[in-house]
Design a protein around this nucleic acid. Structure first.
Lengths: 342, 342
DNA sequence: TTGTATGCGTTATCAG
DNA sequence: CTGATAACGCATACAA
C-alpha cells in the first residue's frame, strides 16, 4: 500500500485535512506547519493519488484525444505527430495529461469516446480531424461535454469551438500562385471528400479559377487516397486528357510526394512539365526531390491552441464558443515554374 | 450530476451492491434481477464511473506510454504512429485505455512518468524507445512498477521484459546482402548512438564484414541525425574519401530518403553508382524513388506484443520476465545492384 | 489557523 | 441470492 495523506498527517502531527491544504498550498495554513508537513511528505516519499483526487474533485486533469480510426490511412499522415506535439506542449504547461482513443473502426472509436466521457475519465476532448456528419460531435453536443475541434465543423460552425486554418483562402492563394505563373490548366487533387478540409480547399481552388475567369472542369478534380499507390491511375488519367493540366494543387504533402514519384516514373519533369503546390509543409516537403512548394499551415500551433482553448473551457464553462484561425503562409521551393505555352 | 449506481438501485428496487454485481456480471445474481437492473440502467442511461471504480479497485485499466521527448527529432519518425497503432489495437482488445507522457525534454518526461506512476494514474507503462543509461528504467525498476520496453535494454537484458527485433542479425543480413552483390566498400549510416537499436545494427554490420574478411574502416561509420539536412555533409565527406563506399547500410528509412535525395542532387545514381539498404520498411520506403530495399521489422507487431505482454504482467504480477523477438524480413526493391568493379 | 465529519461512486466483506 | 457497511484517498463545509 502506498503512502497516503494520513501517514503524512500522523508523522507531521496534523490532521489529514491540513495535509490536503498544504498540497493545495492553501494560504490559510501557517508557513510553519506547511514546512513541517512538507518535510513529512519528503521523508515518506509521499505522492498524491490522482485517482482519489479526481473522485473528490470531479475533475481528472486529463484531456481525451480522438484520433481517426487507426485502420484509416490518415493515421499515417505526419500531420498527427505534429499536432500531438502542439497539444502535448500546451497540456504539459497546464499540467494536463493526455489520453488517446483506441479503435480501428469508426464505431469502435465512437464507443471509446462514450466510455471516456461517461466514465468521467477525461475533463474534455479534442477531435484531431474534422469529418462530415460526425456522430461523435453530435454526441458530445448532446452531452454538453467540453470539446474542441481541430479543423472546421461541417455544420453549426458558430456553435462549435474549433481551431482551423483559413483553408479556403490558403487554397485560393495557392491556386492564384499557379495562375500568376501563367498556368491556365490547373487540376485539383484532394483527399477524402469526407474531410471538411478537402471541401474547403476545393472551394478555394474553384474561387481562384472563377476570379481568373478560367472555366472549371470536372475532369480536373480528383479525390483519392494516394498514400500507397502514388495515385498512378488518377494521374495517368489526368495526363491522357485532351488538354492535360500543366499544374496541380495537391491537398497534402504526402500525396504530393506520391505524385512526384509517379510523375518521375512516367518521365515527366517537375517543375518543367508540371508545377505542383501542396499543403501542410511537413518534413517531407523539404526532403522531397524537387523540394515541394507547400503551404505551411502551422500544425504545431493548431494543436497548441486547441489544447489551450480546451483547458480554458474546462476551467471556466462559461467561456463562449470560439473560432480560432491559425495563419498560413506559402513556402516557395522548387516545384513551380512559369508556364510558357499556348 | 451524472446518474450513479444508487439511482439505478432505487429504480430497480435493489441495493447498490447488487447493481455493482450485475455490472461485474456476478454469477451469484439471479437472471431475473439482472434483467431488472439492466433495464433500469438502460432507462437511466447509466454508465459506470471509471474513476470511482479505479479507486475501489486499485487499478485504472490505463496503460502509460512513454514517448521520446517531443522536442526530439525521433518523434517525427513514422515509426511512432505505427507502434501506436499496434499498441492501440492490443489495448483496445483488452479494454485498456492509453495515456501519453507529455514533455519536451528528457527531464520533463521523467517528471511526467513519476506522476503517472506515483499518482496511480496507470497500471503499467510501455517505453516506446530504448536509450542507453535511461533514468526512467531505473526508476521503474526501483518502484517495482510493471513496464515493457520496446527495443533492447542497454543493460540487464535478462531482468527487463522487452519486445524487440533481432537487430544484430537483421543488420548482418542486410550487410551480407550487399556483400553478396559484390560490394566490398560498405558504409554504415546510423542514427543516434544513444539508441540501443543503433548499436545493435552497427554490431551486426561489423560482424558481416568480419565474416567476409572485409576490413572495418572508421571512416565508413557515420552517426548523425539526418532528418532535415539529408546528411549532405556526411555524405559528401564519405564520397570524397580515397576509396568511397559503393554501398550504404542506413539505419532508418527516413534517413535513407534524405540520403537518396542528397545523392540525387549530387548526380549520383542509385542503385547504379550506390546501393542502399535501410530499415523499418515504413510507407516512405515504397514511395521513395527508387523504392527502397528495406528490412521490414514489423513495427505494428512490436507495439501489439508490447501491449499484450504488459497487460498480462499487470493482471498477473507473477509473470516471469520475458524477451520477445519479432521476426524481420528484408523487402527487396530497387536500391541495390550488383557491383562490378575493381 | 486547524480539526472533524462527510461525500465522491465503486467494490468487497460479511451477514442474512 | 441479496443487503448493509466499510473501505479506496482525498477535498471541503462546517466547527472550533
Amino acid at each position: 500500500m502506498a503512502v497516503t495523506i494520513k501517514d503524512v498527517a500522523k508523522i507531521a502531527n496534523v490532521a489529514p485535512s491540513t495535509v490536503s491544504r498544504v498540497i493545495a498550498n492553501s494560504p490559510r495554513i501557517s508557513e510553519k506547519t506547511k514546512k513541517r508537513v512538507r518535510e513529512a511528505m519528503e521523508e515518506l516519499g509521499y505522492h498524491p493519488n490522482f485517482i482519489a483526487r479526481s473522485l473528490a474533485n470531479q475533475s481528472t486533469q486529463v484531456i481525451g484525444l480522438v484520433m481517426p480510426a487507426s485502420a484509416d490511412k490518415t493515421f499515417q499522415n505526419p500531420f498527427f505527430p505534429e499536432v500531438l506535439r502542439g497539444i502535448s506542449t500546451a497540456a504539459h504547461e497546464k499540467q494536463y495529461a493526455l489520453q488517446m482513443s483506441t479503435g480501428e473502426t469508426e464505431d469502435e472509436i465512437y464507443e471509446g469516446v462514450m466510455q471516456m466521457v461517461q466514465g468521467r475519465r477525461v475533463d474534455g476532448v479534442i477531435l484531431l480531424y474534422s469529418a462530415v456528419e460526425d456522430k461523435i460531435i453530435k454526441y458530445l453536443q448532446k452531452e454538453n461535454f467540453p470539446f474542441v475541434l481541430i479543423g472546421k465543423p461541417f455544420e453549426q460552425v458558430e456553435e462549435i469551438t474549433h481551431v482551423d486554418n483559413d483553408n479556403y483562402r490558403a487554397a485560393r492563394e495557392a491556386t492564384e500562385h499557379l495562375i500568376e505563373l501563367g498556368h491556365k490548366r490547373v487540376a485539383f487533387v484532394g483527399g477524402s471528400i469526407h474531410l471538411v478540409v478537402t471541401i474547403d480547399r476545393l472551394l478555394g481552388y474553384e474561387k481562384a479559377l472563377r476570379n481568373a475567369a478560367i472555366p472549371y472542369k470536372d475532369e480536373y478534380i480528383i479525390q483519392e487516397e494516394f498514400l500507397k499507390e502514388g495515385g498512378q491511375g488518377a494521374i495517368s488519367e489526368l495526363l491522357s486528357l485532351d488538354e492535360p493540366p500543366t499544374a496541380l494543387v495537391v491537398a497534402d504533402d504526402l500525396m504530393a510526394l506520391g505524385i512526384l514519384n509517379t510523375l518521375h516514373d512516367m518521365g515527366i519533369l517537375v517543375p518543367d512539365q508540371m508545377s505542383i503546390v501542396s499543403f501542410n509543409n511537413v518534413l517531407l516537403a523539404e526532403v522531397a526531390r524537387p523540394p515541394l512548394t507547400s503551404v505551411d499551415i502551422n500544425i504545431f500551433k493548431l494543436g497548441f491552441q486547441a489544447a489551450k482553448t480546451l483547458i480554458q473551457m474546462v476551467k471556466d464553462p462559461s467561456e463562449p464558443t470560439k473560432r480560432i484561425t491559425i495563419p498560413h503562409n506559402m513556402v516557395i521551393r522548387q516545384t513551380c515554374k512559369e508556364f510558357k505555352g499556348d
